[in-house]
Design a protein around this nucleic acid. Structure first.
Lengths: 221, 221
DNA sequence: TGACAGGCTCGTACTTAGTACGGTACCGTC
DNA sequence: GACGGTACCGTACTAAGTACGAGCCTGTCA
């Protein structure tokens, strides 16, 4: 879809890169496919980004920019739920971003802003400094790890679960993996099952525990 | 390091692939570098694996095979701690595996065995089926997500923390990111800080919460 | 024992990817 | 109307995945 009218820019390049990765995975994102999508030749891209690595750093930051920020000063639990749900939804739309997180150590401004807002919200709610760091690491671990698992699922929504799970079960011997088979037949194949529901559950458990930690430290709130 | 003596095999290929990825990241793992390491020409590899994708699937399973399995029948909390610590340690040694988890949907036998043992341990300890699924998703999320964060750290151990953090702080304006700066100066730069310690903390919080869930369900234990 | 078959290895070459190098067209300024 | 900078492009080099077919080694059966 070449758009000859608009001039190229770093923003346009990154936006197009995100769109390509969404459509065909990170593997589909090449300097040539990106140039094609922008109606341009590959080498033109290098006037707006230094190299492909910078594009990868850039699109990770674009992904962070699409997550809703928590608001320091609001009810901390509500803000953390809002942030976690938004982050998970965004990572689900851009699953390739999770793999990039691991290899990128140069966070962009949106990434920094995101973490700053999260930490700020906890601090404002009365979490002591060290506990804030602990809780931040804990919540981020949960969100990222859930996204990893969700991306690795062979099915992508509640619709295809039954079909895919039955296919997998045919290749899983109950002798070799009795408990996996039990979970698949007795839990996953139940009507109404949706892995996404696990997110709310786990998040609630974690936040309850965190609330307990806060209460121990500042009994007055 | 060519080893002309031993014959090629799928196992040897995968082991060498893991070693190369450990040394130079996933980017350093090419059919040519792999062949070189085995003292062989690239095309010889294709008699033991179908293609590079199968190698990637294979090394993920190798990584899982190196994690300590929980023992069904043992004290569930102790087994979960053992498994989580082992999994995190392994993922820290092979950080490239985290990125692969997201793109691989064909789990190998070691991966299946790992999950089966984990689920089995929870079931044997009295966790009902649905709660087992919830808890399994929760614990795996925490472990994977922590590994993601650990891999994305700009420093790799407690030794380089101070130096690297000070470098970063020079580029972080306290006006733009006040809470990040506060955490960095007031927590990270404290002597004795080690991000790895966050793991134990968060794991304890999660397991305490899980123990509460189990107690609610089977008050008799 | 000699011929054959099957499997392992390799040489060559094709395709796709990232990107260095230099050219060109357009634009505003003096 | 000459000049310089910016954005874009054509070409080409290198690295990587892998298809194709040829050589070699080994074990088997006549």
């Amino acid at each position: 879809m070449p758009k000859p009218g608009a001039p190229l820019s770093r923003e346009r390049v990154l936006r197009a890169a995100v769109a390509i990765a969404d459509a065909g995975g990170i593997g589909g994102l090449t300097m040539r496919s990106l140039a094609d999508a922008l109606g341009v030749k590959p080498m033109s891209l290098y006037h707006h980004v230094a190299n492909k690595d910078e594009i990868l750093d850039g699109i990770v930051d674009v992904v962070f920019s699409r997550m809703e920020l928590p608001t320091p000063g609001g009810d901390w639990r509500h803000e953390m739920v809002k942030r976690a749900n938004s982050a998970r939804a965004v990572l689900r739309r851009h699953p390739w971003a999770i793999g990039l997180l691991e290899s990128r150590t140069a966070p962009g401004p949106a990434t920094l802003r995101h973490h700053d807002a999260t930490i700020g919200t906890l601090r404002r709610a009365g979490f002591p400094l060290a506990l804030t760091a602990h809780v931040h690491a804990l919540l981020d671990s949960y969100v990222y790890g859930f996204a990893v698992q969700e991306a690795a699922l062979p099915f992508s929504g509640p619709d295809s679960v039954t079909e895919v799970t039955e296919d997998i079960l045919e290749h899983l011997s109950p002798d070799d993996y009795p408990h996996l088979v039990e979970i698949a037949t007795g839990h996953v194949l139940r009507p109404g099952y949706d892995f996404a529901d696990e997110f709310e559950f786990g998040l609630g458990v974690v936040l309850d525990a965190v609330a307990g930690l806060l209460a121990d430290v500042s009994p007055g709130s």
